[in-house]
């Protein structure tokens, strides 16, 4: 009948077909549109358009907000992942559910909920004014976008950190204490270095979607704040300039690839 290789090839064929049609072909089209003009002639103008001040500003802002969100996610997620991995908390199940539960809700729905919370006449300001406190003007600001990013991407930071922390054997921590390290030294010399692979994958899982998002910035940033994702989206949907949109996408893709290569290299050097 089949040998193993033939069988596995046969079993993989539906996915391979899917990947070719919906990943490889669109990617090729992005490259084609990005590197040609309307007449189909080869040009780097679309890619070079990133140098326009308004595009550079969007890219810079996207990088800054994604970075801030990633840092906040990391600072929130690490202690939580440590608690989850310690196994000593009997309410571990409840905490896990609390963080997984929002992920079962639709991403757009979750972000819309934040709109209602943050609006000038929204829930938070309603509560503040009820107690006679000054209201805050947070919707349509960068802060609102960061809140949306952190809320949506936090679980992607927690899970790899939790996995990395749970893999550390108790006896390794005990060994460090036994050899004279106090709790702080043990954390910085043992726990943190051993979780670097988890930290890197957490950073990638938060930073890349945060860098490329346009939905969160559209909903929580109004039309005032344009991230690079919004610029690309508008090229496709408003200006119908597919060449320009694809060209800018290629630039963004470059940032993603650089991020992944750096991650992989750091990961490798920390393992060897």
């Amino acid at each position: 009948m089949f040998n193993n290789r033939q069988t596995s090839r046969l079993l993989a064929s539906p996915y391979i077909a899917w990947a070719v049609i919906f990943i490889v072909v669109p990617l090729a089209m992005i490259f084609f549109y990005g590197l040609t003009d309307e007449s189909g002639a080869l040009t780097f103008a679309n890619v070079a358009a990133i140098a326009r001040p308004e595009n550079l500003k969007s890219l810079g802002l996207a990088l800054v907000l994604a970075l801030i969100s990633t840092i906040i996610c990391f600072l929130l997620a690490y202690p939580l992942a440590m608690i989850l991995a310690s196994n000593k908390i009997s309410s571990q199940g409840i905490i896990t559910t609390l963080f997984i539960l929002p992920m079962w809700m639709n991403f757009l729905l979750r972000t819309m909920a934040w709109m209602t919370l943050l609006e000038n006449k929204g829930v938070i300001n309603g509560i503040l004014s009820f107690f006679g406190l000054p209201t805050i003007n947070i919707i349509n600001t960068s802060a609102a976008i960061v809140i949306g990013m952190v809320y949506n991407f936090l679980p992607f930071m927690i899970l790899p950190l939790y996995n990395a922390l749970a893999r550390i054997d108790d006896s390794v921590i005990n060994a460090a204490r036994d050899l004279g390290a106090n709790a702080v030294q043990t954390f910085f010399k043992i726990t943190l270095p051993l979780t670097i692979p988890g930290i890197l994958s957490g950073i990638t899982m938060v930073f890349i979607p945060a860098l490329t998002t346009f939905a969160i910035s559209t909903m929580l940033g109004g039309s005032k704040i344009l991230l690079i994702g919004n610029v690309i989206e508008q090229e496709f949907t408003l200006s119908y300039d597919w060449n320009m949109g694809a060209g800018l996408s290629l630039v963004l893709m470059l940032f993603i690839i650089v991020n992944m290569v750096v991650t992989m290299m750091t990961d490798k050097s920390s393992n060897s």
């Binding site: 054997d169 390794v172 005990n174 060994a175 204490r177 036994d178 004279g180 106090n182 051993l194 920390s270």
Partner: peptide
């Protein structure tokens, strides 16, 4: 007294070496 303050050392069953 915390383990790091004791004048003794332990060899653990699962070696517990620092893999990094």
């Amino acid at each position: 007294l915390a383990p790091n303050k004791r004048q003794l050392n332990t060899v653990f069953q699962k070696y517990a070496l620092f893999t990094h």
